[in-house]
Design a protein around this nucleic acid. Structure first.
Length: 422
RNA sequence: GGAGAGAUGGCCGAGUGGUCGAAGGCGCCUGACUCGAAAUCAGGUGUGGGCAUAGCUCACCGGGGGUUCGAAUCCCUCUCUCUCCGCCA
């Protein structure tokens, strides 16, 4: 959520910056509502002050019954007026909130301006894409032939866009989760979290999934939502809190399943498990000061890159342009891994700096020093990394002519010594 | 699922209709004392909103609603926590 005061005071600048996301932001209604709110609040507060002053009369010694009756009548009249004025304020504030919650974050000045994914900028690349001396297979061919990915079974028990891992496939998933968590905890200094995957509405609003993207979410009964990423429960760990500034940055890493309806992506990535309704992911989340968020964001990207480097998976780092970054993000880097089977790069991690956008929605603040005023933290998060897509990358990068797949060295200790899946 | 108890500031904990944004304690900050520290003493110390912004003012005692001239306090309701019983991985 953007700061209303800032938006109103910098209307043109905000409109310009938001327009780089595509479409145009009409902020006039917001400005109008803000002005109406100011008037309504002032009027209401004055009425309340009047009534308060009146009520002192009841306590004065020697008030006559007639005087009391007069005060009562006068106060009652003001009370009725207050009721009306309060309703007015609530109505305006609800409408204001609705507009504000549906406004995306301001792109960071360093976010490249562009209209679509085609305008994303490659920042750096690591490794050399593998060239195979035999026809490269795609992950589903390899996985099904090896008996480690079962799409047919998944279709029967859940439907399209699900996958069942079997045997070494299931083991690979578990190995990757442990491998990534261990790396981020031991080498990168994150604290491991295992969050609920069912969260309340406030969490979803806090990180920006709701209200705008309700069609993307799986909604359970009791007003609970299946998380689309561990970012949601982990960021909300500190919702409505004031953190001790000396504790920052706070760094968490969590392994969780992620549930996405993928509404609006019909016909996209229908084969295999590139785009499924449930996948698992290791997610890193940081809470930082505004001064350090850019550096911490860069560091988090490096932390994600470490995973791919350790697994020997060639990738490139893309700085997403204004037309492609997520709703809540100010700046975002995607890590795209090279897939010989699909013959191109594919997103495997998305690392975003939300600045104070989520913090304002979720009211996550910190106190720089004892006695100082609280400020909003900056939140940063990124996949470290998506496990399903890592399995895709391993299958396609480590495939051999006979259809078997080598286990990357770094993973072997986690695979019970299995060196090749055949 | 059944029965009961409870939710107050960073923490503990008082407060059962107005003088309460809220006693007291702890913690924290500032000052005095001290070579320095501890102890002691004095003062200060919540969050957000509005405005004519060194100030004034309004709101907030788990959430929502009600009664009342007036609610932390009374009533209803929801949520959560705790205790006991039942069930259960």
């Amino acid at each position: 959520m953007l700061d209303l005061k800032y938006v109103v005071e910098h209307l043109d600048e905000v409109a310009d910056r938001l327009s780089t996301r595509g479409g145009r932001a009409d902020l006039e209604p917001l400005k109008d509502l803000a002005a109406r709110r100011r008037l309504a609040v002032t009027t209401r507060d004055q009425a309340r002050a009047d009534q308060k002053a009146l009520s002192d009369g009841f306590r004065q010694p020697g008030v006559t019954p007639e005087r009391r009756e007069g005060l009562r009548a006068e106060s009652k009249a003001i009370g009725e007026r207050i009721t009306v004025l309060e309703a007015d304020v609530s109505d305006i504030e609800a409408r204001l909130q609705d507009v504000l919650l549906n406004l995306p974050n301001l792109p960071h000045p360093t976010t490249p301006v562009g209209a679509s994914a085609d305008d994303n900028v490659e920042v750096r690349a690591w490794g050399t894409p593998r060239t195979l001396d035999f026809p490269a297979k795609e992950h589903w061919e390899l996985g099904e032939a090896l008996g480690i990915l079962d799409f047919e079974a998944a279709r029967k028990i859940s439907g399209a866009r699900f996958v069942v891992y079997r045997g070494a496939g299931a083991r690979l998933e578990r190995a990757l989760a442990s491998f990534m968590l261990d790396m981020h905890v031991a080498r990168h200094g994150y604290t491991e979290i295992l969050p609920p995957v069912l969260v309340n509405r406030d969490c979803m609003v806090g990180t920006g999934q709701l209200p705008k993207f309700v069609e993307e979410a799986y909604i359970a009964t009791d007003d609970l939502y299946l998380i689309p990423t561990a970012e949601v429960p982990v960021t909300n760990l500190h919702r409505e809190e004031i953190l001790d500034g000396s504790r920052l940055p706070v760094k968490y890493v969590a392994y969780s399943p992620c549930f996405r309806r993928e509404a609006g992506s019909h016909g996209k990535d229908v084969k295999g498990m590139t785009r499924v309704h449930q996948f698992q992911k290791v997610e890193m989340v940081k809470f930082t000061t505004p001064e350090t968020s850019c550096d911490e964001h860069e560091a988090l990207v490096r932390d994600a890159e470490d995973v791919l480097q350790a697994l020997g998976l060639p990738y490139r780092v893309m700085s997403l342009c204004t037309g492609d970054i997520g709703f809540s993000a100010s700046k975002c880097y995607d890590l795209e891994v090279h897939l010989p089977g699909q013959g191109g790069y594919r997103e495997i991690s998305s690392c975003s700096n939300f600045e104070d956008y989520q913090a304002r929605r979720a009211s996550i603040r910190y106190r720089p020093a004892p006695g100082e005023k609280p400020r909003f933290v900056h939140t940063i998060n990124g996949s470290g990394v998506a496990i399903g897509r890592t399995i895709i990358a391993i299958l396609e990068n480590y495939q051999q002519a006979d259809g078997s797949v080598l286990v990357p060295d770094a993973l072997r200790p986690y695979m019970g010594g299995i060196e090749v899946i055949r």
